[in-house]
């Protein structure tokens, strides 16, 4: 067995793998934020709350309706996405003519309401959600015991992230979307319903958050506060990656997960701040973010 700087390889590889799993959540969430920001120019502070909502919807589907994990993986994002569409139509749409900061404040208020409601009805001690039977157990990779479910999380997030990237960058629909981002008036003049596209985009971005929530439900106990601290980290991820590109948001998510895992090996106490330190450095050297376009 080789050793690296006195660190046993199983610890190093193990923590990197755990970092990748965390990175999977960062990637899906920051992707959703980037998609929404691209078209709406709104920083969706409610993203964390909607991620939490995804987990709760999955839990409710199971406990109140008897719908299991796999259907929930599709249904819960749809429900959360529909909820997002309602929010966009009734509230966010009224703010587009104002300073973008109002969007941030509004979604912050929405996050408080959503979290407060769930905390009120379910407490904060967390509800258990079982790992689906087919994914229980795990494999011994030699350096660590890898639970099957966590491996699935990585796979699922990669599929969703790159699927989204393909749709936006390589399809006709995505081309409209990108065009509308650049110049909504012109695209509207071509007969494309831009407001509808904005609404659906918000719904889709939010559905991604809901999807991440369902993925997280069996790992973390389903808890009203689960999104609250996550969202701040994801904000930092977004600042580091820059808002310019979809791929930037995805890659930064995974990379920072890995960096966090690596920090755990060498300086565990620092793992919680490392992302913010990187953010400060990036701001100093390249203020528009790693993948961002100069503003």
């Amino acid at each position: 067995m080789f050793e690296l700087l006195g660190i046993p390889p199983q610890v190093l590889l193990g923590q990197l793998l755990l970092g990748l799993i965390n990175g999977s959540f960062y990637a899906v969430l920051s992707l959703g934020l980037a998609v929404i920001f691209g078209l709406l120019n709104i920083i969706n502070f409610a993203h964390g709350a909607l991620y939490m909502m995804g987990a709760f919807v999955a839990w409710m589907l199971l406990n109140y309706v008897g719908i299991g994990y796999w259907p929930a993986l599709i249904l819960a994002p749809l429900i959360v996405g529909a909820f997002g569409i309602v929010l966009e139509r009734t509230m966010l749409a009224r703010l587009y003519h104002l300073d973008h900061l109002y969007g941030l404040l509004l979604t912050f208020g929405l996050a408080l309401i959503i979290q407060g409601l769930f905390r009120n009805y379910y407490g904060i001690s967390g509800l258990p959600y079982r790992i689906p039977d087919i994914l229980s157990g795990g494999h011994n990779l030699g350096f660590m015991f890898m639970p099957n479910y966590r491996a699935w999380v990585v796979v699922a997030s990669v599929i969703v992230c790159f699927g989204t990237w393909f749709m936006i960058e390589k399809t006709r629909l995505g081309a409209y979307l990108r065009a509308a981002t650049e110049n909504p008036v012109l695209v509207g003049a071509f007969g494309i319903n831009v407001p509808l596209m904005i609404t659906l985009t918000y719904g889709f971005g939010v559905a991604l958050a809901g999807f991440a929530g369902v993925l997280a439900a069996p790992i973390y106990s389903v808890n009203p506060n689960m999104g609250a601290d996550m969202i701040i980290v994801v904000f930092a991820v977004v600042v580091i990656g820059g808002m310019g590109s979809i791929m930037g948001a995805i890659l930064t998510g995974y990379i920072l997960g890995l960096v966090e895992g690596l920090t755990r090996v060498f300086y565990p106490e620092g793992s919680a701040v490392v992302i913010f330190v990187i953010m400060a450095i990036v701001l100093l050297i390249k203020p528009e973010g790693l993948f961002g376009r100069a503003a």
């Binding site: 509004l106 208020g109 996050a111 408080l112 905390r119």
Partner: peptide, 10 residues
């Protein structure tokens, strides 16, 4: 209290 604060925000 949190919910009311959120509503005031909105």
């Amino acid at each position: 209290v949190t919910i009311i604060q959120g509503v005031i925000f909105v």
